[in-house]
Amino acid sequence: MTGTEGRGFILNVAPDGPWAGWAGSRFLEEGLASVHAAPGRALARLMNLVSLLPGGFGLIWDHPPAWMQALPSESRQGWWEAITAIPHLSLHLGPQSAQQLPGGAFRGWAHTSEMPEGPLGELWRQGVIGWVPRPGRDWTLPGLGVAHSGDEAGPGWLWGEAALALGALPALASGEALIAAMSEAQGTAERGLAQRLASGAWVDLPFSRRAVGWRLSLAGGAEFLRAGGSWPAALGQLRALKALLQERLRAPIHLGACEDLQVAALLGRQALREGHPWRASLPLPPAPGAFTPGLAADPRDPVPLEARAMLPQGWLETLDHPPVALLRVPAVPPEAGAQTLLGQIQPAPAIRWLPPGLPPPGRFDPDRPWAPAEAYPFPADPGNGVQRGLFEDLG
Rank of each mutant, 00 (worst) to 15 (best):
L327S: 00
R125L: 01
R308L: 05
E306G: 01
S51D: 11
G357K: 12
L342A: 06
T2S: 03
P87C: 13
F27P: 01
P293I: 14
M115K: 12
M1F: 02
A44F: 04
A307I: 04
L354G: 02
V146Q: 06
M182K: 01
H88N: 11
G8N: 06
F9I: 01
W231L: 09
V132P: 01
E392L: 09
P232A: 15
L235D: 02
M47K: 13
L261M: 07
Q344T: 15
L342M: 08
F207V: 10
P333S: 09
W124M: 08
P330S: 05
L172E: 01
P377D: 07
F378H: 15
F106M: 00
S113Y: 04
A171W: 04
A185S: 07
P361L: 11
G3I: 13
L316R: 08
S90E: 09
R328C: 03
S73I: 15
E392R: 15
A37Y: 06
H92N: 10
G383K: 15
P299K: 10
H276W: 08
Q126V: 06
A180Q: 15
A290E: 13
W202N: 07
P54Y: 12
L358N: 07
A180K: 14
P277K: 03
L319E: 05
L245C: 04
E81L: 02
E117S: 04
A271H: 10
R300K: 12
A37W: 06
L53T: 08
E306F: 09
T4F: 00
L261C: 04
L178K: 05
V128F: 00
L272I: 05
L178P: 00
G192M: 05
R273C: 02
G221Y: 01
A110I: 03
A297T: 09
P293Q: 12
I179D: 00
M68S: 10
G55Q: 07
R250G: 02
Q344M: 11
E223T: 11
A147F: 07
L319Q: 02
A280Y: 14
M310P: 01
P232Y: 12
R250D: 05
P95Q: 10
A198V: 13
E29A: 14
R300N: 12
Q99M: 11
R26C: 04
E259L: 12
M68R: 10
A280F: 05
G150A: 10
G385A: 06
A348D: 06
A380V: 15
G187F: 07
D365S: 11
G228V: 13
L52Q: 10
A336H: 09
D301A: 13
G40S: 05
R368L: 04
W315Q: 03
Q339S: 12
P377M: 14
G121I: 04
G220P: 03
P312M: 03
Q186S: 03
P369G: 06
A234D: 06
L49C: 02
T292K: 13
D365M: 14
L358P: 04
A280K: 15
D204L: 09
V50N: 01
G385I: 13
Q96S: 14
L197C: 02
P54W: 09
A336G: 10
G6M: 12
A173D: 00
K242A: 02
R250N: 03
